[in-house]
Nucleic acid binder design. Sequence first.
DNA 1: ACGAAACGATCCAACTTGTATCGAAACTTG
DNA 2: CAAGTTTCGATACAAGTTGGATCGTTTCGT
Lengths: 194, 194
Amino acid sequence: MAPVGRPRSDASHAAILKATYELLREEGLARLTLDKVASRAGASRSTLYRWWPSRGAIAMEATLDMLNQELSLEPKGDNALAEFRRLLKSVARAMRGSTGPIMAGILAECQRDPETLRLFKENLVAPRRAEVVPLLERGIQDGSIRPSVAPHTILDLTFGAIYHQLLLHVPTDDAWMDGVIDILVNGIAAKPTA
Amino acid sequence: MAPVGRPRSDASHAAILKATYELLREEGLARLTLDKVASRAGASRSTLYRWWPSRGAIAMEATLDMLNQELSLEPKGDNALAEFRRLLKSVARAMRGSTGPIMAGILAECQRDPETLRLFKENLVAPRRAEVVPLLERGIQDGSIRPSVAPHTILDLTFGAIYHQLLLHVPTDDAWMDGVIDILVNGIAAKPTA
DNA sequence: ACGAAACGATCCAACTTGTATCGAAACTTG
DNA sequence: CAAGTTTCGATACAAGTTGGATCGTTTCGT
């Protein structure tokens, strides 16, 4: 059964997302208003309100595609720990570009709008974790990662470190990421204390 | 040289900070308006604008005292690593209470107002690090922490993990913090990989 | 007494949000 | 082709927030 009535304009939909994406890069989510998005997209604000419940929701949808293109997990047959290293570096690299400030803005928006936080966790955090946790579990099985650690806690630490630099606007480089990975892999204790 | 004119009212100053602090607890920084602060403090908005450049600055000043009271680094003569463990747990415990959401709100505000970020780093991050980095360096000297790690990177990781849970509104408990510390201290590698 | 600075009260323009209304356009069904 | 349905862009509106300004009053030092 085809829906009755005028169909949703794909052109408007695409134009709105494109305008949002551009404005996010230029001014950040903090200064993003639905008015500017509508103007640039050649749409009207009522169209935006019809399809998205909040500013955060628009920004989220506009950002997701970009992120999903930028971050890709390609297994290469190394041991799991080596693969995890590569993943972390690629994430840190992505955050170093214009994507970083956008992510920081979204995290900020999540603090003022619970719905945006929900979208963020559902559409970004959860899917990513669903990919990476099995990788870490494989590392525990192939012997490259010791068994007593919880994969989710590993992710809390690593993404936490990256978010930390992001939110405090501390630029990162490969040397920093190597330092983080070194600590994560080897720990800070002079001798194993377990 | 005593300043000429009517001196700044300590009563107003204190009342404004108190009102800010209360409103932060009740509604969070996202919903904090200078109007509400002024009303509750029995002051006028012009007084607020006279002394503080932004909403973030007021929230920062109101939060700093509270945080500085809540978090105290008391050396107890253990080895440095043990002392660091205690510090982390006390921070995590503080973030578990009503201070946590306030901190998350401030981090969010930092993303939209560079001046607030500057205040945050100058008055909170930097002083804390100035306390803890020597502790970690002592750990390297007393042999409880291996020499090749950078103290600052350790802090990026640990505070990153705590911020991560804070921003994603994931409640933490002692078991989680123990898991983080375990990974941090011992690493995730099954065998030391140098 | 006088000037200087801070105070509370009030007003104002500009901007953003959320909602609503309107006629025109696009598409399905009969 | 005609009627019904839904979206579209344009516009208007109330409510809330921001940042700044003015005004008369209050509290100091000189």
